[in-house]
């Protein structure tokens, strides 16, 4: 009973907090703290969100954003895993490339956005290129670290067992580095979404970001729509980041790093 009530409390308290926040929003806007042309009321925004959900345009915008996010992430991670593993196995290559990777990682990806818009236009390839470029560098660092931190005994054992070539890559190297890669992917997923929104906001490619800007340009009457799309952007973030978070916890549970963390966090709960 005690465990059950504690469990329900864990769900109820956050839900109540969300509700309270929404109510506060309604009170602040309807009560006149903000003017309607600055900040729409919660109910107006929810009505706008409900209307938007019913229209195919809404889903097309979500689709455009998520598609770019997905393609950019896939391209960047394939490249990062291949190049990162290759660099990790060769000390000379690793030490030579490290500074280049650090420099490119430090360049904010949106710096090249105007150039990419010029070359590729306000298109899907433009978004995908920007996302892949921005996400590749931190990811490749994670991969290099993951592969380099591999237990040498594991590698020697696999050699002794005659596991070699591509087979060793997929069966030994990738699984050993997978916690690092999973973490890298979760971080990359968040930045990929930011870059997708920026490329729509600044670059005018279709998607959530452009719809937010259009609603803002549409004047006061469209503000509820704008906030509806902002909420949508947050919800997409929750779903995408949450997916990687669950992946990290549930797919990686066999890895020793996760085992330790599990037992630690269970210890912390009591």
């Amino acid at each position: 009973m005690n465990a059950l009530s504690r469990r329900s409390l864990r769900w109820l308290a956050p839900a109540a907090a969300v509700l309270a926040a929404l109510l506060l929003w309604q009170l602040a806007t309807a009560g006149g703290l903000f003017r309607a042309d600055q900040f729409p009321t919660m109910t107006d925004t929810m009505i706008a969100l409900g209307k938007a959900v019913a229209s195919p345009l809404y889903w097309a915008a979500i689709g455009a954003t998520v598609q770019a996010w997905f393609l950019g992430l896939v391209i960047a991670s394939v490249l990062a895993i291949v190049i990162g593993s290759a660099l990790a196995f060769n000390d000379f290559a690793f030490r030579s490339a490290a500074s280049v990777i650090e420099i490119f990682k430090a360049i904010p990806a949106i710096a090249i956005l105007p150039l990419v818009i010029l070359v590729l236009g306000s298109t899907l390839p433009m978004k995908v290129f920007l996302i892949a470029f921005g996400v590749f560098w931190p990811l490749v660092i994670q991969v290099i670290y993951g592969v380099r931190s591999m237990d040498p005994t594991v590698l020697d054992t696999s050699k002794a067992l005659g596991v070699r070539g591509v087979w060793r890559f997929f069966v030994v190297v990738i699984p050993s580095a997978s916690p690092y890669i999973a973490t890298g992917l979760r971080i990359a997923s968040a930045s990929a979404l930011i870059l997708a929104v920026v490329s729509e906001l600044v670059g005018g490619a279709s998607g959530i970001g452009r719809n937010i800007l259009q609603a803002q340009n549409g004047g006061t009457a469209a503000y509820p729509v704008m906030y509806a799309y902002i909420i949508t952007a947050g919800l997409i973030g929750i779903i995408l980041t949450g997916a990687f978070f669950l992946l990290e916890r549930n797919v990686m549970h066999w890895h020793e790093s996760q085992r330790n963390i599990r037992s630690n966090s269970e210890g912390a709960l009591k």
Binding site: A17, V18, I194, V197, I212, Q216, Y223, G237, I238, L240
Partner: peptide, 26 residues
């Protein structure tokens, strides 16, 4: 912490540039 957790998480995953047009309006 427990109560504010979902709100903080929402603000954390919300791509911050999406808020820019709203901030201009405000």
């Amino acid at each position: 912490r427990q109560v504010s957790n979902p709100l903080i998480y929402f603000l954390y995953v919300l791509p911050a540039p999406a808020l820019l047009p709203a901030m201009i309006a405000l």
